[in-house]
């Protein structure tokens, strides 16, 4: 479903270079956990490399780390679609996701902390072909409705270089 060739991927805004020694091939109904220390470059990789590549081929829903800023655009979107706008942030996120009727990819950047075990119920993860998540709470259970699970590990070897490695989880 999604392929990322083995290569070096520069991220000009963050000044980082990502090295992917082995190509990534993700089948349909895959969940990928982006894992690494704080400051390893996970969000930069998402925004500068993965999101632009995925967006060229698929419709995606991106829930960013700065959700407090993004929620304003969610409120505006639901209002313009003439749909109810919940006050509570998790309900707002759920309503926003449900309002996107056709979408193949879901990307979550430290969003599961708002849902924890209710994540699958709130977002119906199985409706997506690909789910990418950055999380520090290490909760895999809500994502088990996806058929394949992977961990994409970020290793900062040098000040500006990050090495990526993919591990198959289930």
């Amino acid at each position: 479903m999604f392929e990322l060739p083995a290569a070096k991927y520069p991220a000009p805004r963050s000044g980082l270079n990502y090295e992917l020694p082995v190509a990534i091939q993700l089948p349909h109904s895959s969940c990928v956990f982006l894992q690494g220390d704080n400051g390893a470059g996970k969000t930069s990789f998402l925004e500068e490399v993965l999101v632009p590549k995925i967006h060229k081929a698929y419709d995606l829903l991106y829930l960013a780390q700065d959700i407090e800023i993004q929620q304003t655009t969610m409120i505006a979107t639901l209002a313009l679609l003439n749909q109810p706008v919940p006050d509570f942030l998790p309900d707002l996120i759920t309503a926003w996701i449900k309002a996107a009727t056709r979408c193949q990819v879901l990307i979550l950047d430290e969003i599961d902390k708002y849902f924890k075990k209710d994540l699958d119920q709130a977002m119906t993860l199985s409706r997506f072909s690909l789910v990418l998540t950055v999380s520090h709470i290490n909760l895999q259970a809500p994502y088990r409705s996806m058929q394949h699970g992977y961990a994409l590990r970020f290793q900062r070897n040098h000040v500006r270089t990050v090495t990526l490695s993919l591990e198959h989880l289930w």
Partner: peptide
């Protein structure tokens, strides 16, 4: 806001989706 709305698929089914995305940016 422009970045978030450039990714949003919510207005795909509307006429003039770019216009609605711009409205969402202004409203936000």
């Amino acid at each position: 806001f422009r970045f978030f709305m450039s990714l949003s698929p919510h207005f795909h089914n509307q006429r003039w989706p770019q216009f609605w995305r711009l409205c969402a940016v202004v409203m936000a």
